[in-house]
């Protein structure tokens, strides 16, 4: 394996979309974009010797699974929250209906004062 000193590099120019995504990531993580790029460069260096497509296909699938798993957990939490909100909102609907009839009844009772 090459040592880090004699390893050669090529410049890969990022396209607009990639730069935007990196800027977005940096903003969300509150770090500078260069540190995101450095991490990607380090990652590629550490996997230089894994040069077959099968490995990378598996690796990217692995990441995909991790990401889906992560999103599933967020959605599962949000489902619990949404169910709570629906329950609360249904309770409010019943209260609003009851209040409406009470307000109307009270209004009618007081309006009759005019007729006395």
């Amino acid at each position: 394996m090459n040592s880090s000193n004699d390893r050669k590099y090529v410049k890969y120019e990022l396209n607009f979309k990639q730069k935007s995504k990196i800027a977005d990531l940096a903003s969300k993580k509150n770090v500078d974009a260069d540190s995101i790029m450095s991490r990607i460069e380090d990652f590629l260096v550490s996997f230089t010797d894994y040069d077959n497509f099968t490995f990378w296909d598996k690796l990217l699938s692995f990441f995909n699974m991790k990401m889906i798993d992560f999103r599933s957990k967020i959605i599962a939490d949000d489902i619990i929250e949404t169910k709570k909100k629906i329950k609360e909102q249904k309770k409010l609907l019943r209260e609003y209906e009851d209040d409406y009839f009470a307000i109307v009844a009270l209004g009618k009772a007081l309006e009759s004062l005019n007729k006395i």
Binding site: K8, Y9, V10, Y12, E13, D34, L44, V45, F53
Partner: peptide, 20 residues
Amino acid sequence: RKTKNYLLIPDKFAQNFDDL
């Protein structure tokens, strides 16, 4: 500081993948 617009990729890695 100006953010760089490129990544430095090990040449061996770059040679092995057509679709970087």
